[in-house]
Design a binder for these strands. Sequence first.
DNA 1: ACCTGAACACCGTTCAAGT
DNA 2: ACCTGAACACCGTTCAAGT
Lengths: 249, 249
Amino acid sequence: MKASAAASRADSAAAGGRRRRAALSREAIIEAALNIGSSEGGSALTFSRLGKELGADPTAVYRHFRDKDELVLALTDRMVEESVKRVEDVDPEQVGWREWLRRVAVAVRAVYLERPAVAVLAATRTTASPAETASVERLIAVLHRTGLGVIEAAEIYRGLLDLTLAMAQATAAFTLLPAEVQEQDATAWTVTYATLSESEFPHVRRSVPRLAELNRDDGAVFELVLDTFLDGVQTRVDRAGAGGSGSGS
Amino acid sequence: MKASAAASRADSAAAGGRRRRAALSREAIIEAALNIGSSEGGSALTFSRLGKELGADPTAVYRHFRDKDELVLALTDRMVEESVKRVEDVDPEQVGWREWLRRVAVAVRAVYLERPAVAVLAATRTTASPAETASVERLIAVLHRTGLGVIEAAEIYRGLLDLTLAMAQATAAFTLLPAEVQEQDATAWTVTYATLSESEFPHVRRSVPRLAELNRDDGAVFELVLDTFLDGVQTRVDRAGAGGSGSGS
DNA sequence: ACCTGAACACCGTTCAAGT
DNA sequence: ACCTGAACACCGTTCAAGT
């Protein structure tokens, strides 16, 4: 029972084979790590799980990465690359800057939430990889072209990405908690808030169905925040347009 | 050497005494945990550190909390209470809804960042404690009084708090990383980004001093996001005022 | 009734052996 | 040149003893 579960994990890595010695390489390890990140339930990224996935001794990874942090940095690069890839054929000139920013943020969040175990470690890291620098340049450029000054464009870029990555990381971290813990927190909204005194908590009571709904759907909360933030960016773009008109500082 | 370091920790808990048996209680344990959370460097909240702080065996905590999660929930309540206390004598009628929301968000972030080790565990949890339910009611009420419908007010409340807590949690988590790792990430901005090709990365090169500055000051990024978000809320308030005018759905 | 201390199943990491 | 496996210092948690 136990042995067969372990064997099937090894098989999925060796792709049909018998548990080959897996031709360990940075690439293979990264792939395995991303795989763990995307598997069900709350499984953290761990050397022993990595070893199982690779069909190798857990410590074999140390032959290819100095330590766990170096692996995390490599995974961070992959997450950024994947995010960029998801929006590379959306043209900001076609869909407009606002819709483009929206799609970028939604894509980044989606990539991270597909791999919560990696997201939790990668979301706040900076590697200055080619994919990262190129996308930073692009984001600032698109924001600058709206009429915003370059500095303000850079500030908005940074705010948008921090906001997106932080919210994705928070959701990913919650996802990794034990299922009972998650359910327990959820009942706060469906039970406790739903039964608060109507006279003492009139506003809560009137909105509790929506609040419970939002609690079940983190994506809706994120998009709400994102849209409100973009409304704020619009306000700044309008303000810039009224003054300097066009390019400029 | 080693022993004296341990003794001084115990002393700080026993407040002058000799390492009293510390009258263990939920209160004392919570206080000790908050203390750890606020000490220097990247010290995680751990049973052994808790035991040292209390001058008791690490496992003694299990006599007062079923498991670590129950402790985390109690700490979450404390963080909410402390946040509420920080703004309780700021009157939204006096300073206006926008400034009030701003101060609430800034206070919540400050409370969490003073205790990164606790923040990282508490930020995404819901306990439906009295302090929590009361502040949710208040937030929705203030937003509703701007002319927004209750449901929309509830949505904005939720977005604002998720945004604030997620960004605080992300900063707290980064704070807990080893110092060398933090520095390494910081050099991405001061070194790599600062030396990118001027022709290929014109926008980055023009804004890199500001970007490096923002990278050193997470608070500035947060306030930027917060102000932009509040601009977006303003847009929605104006929209609601143009239509329904006053109370309503 | 509460605390202690040994024990267990995990973590990341190091290092001496193996091939 | 790369992998294995024992070992170590930590995690949270359980449980039999102690007082």
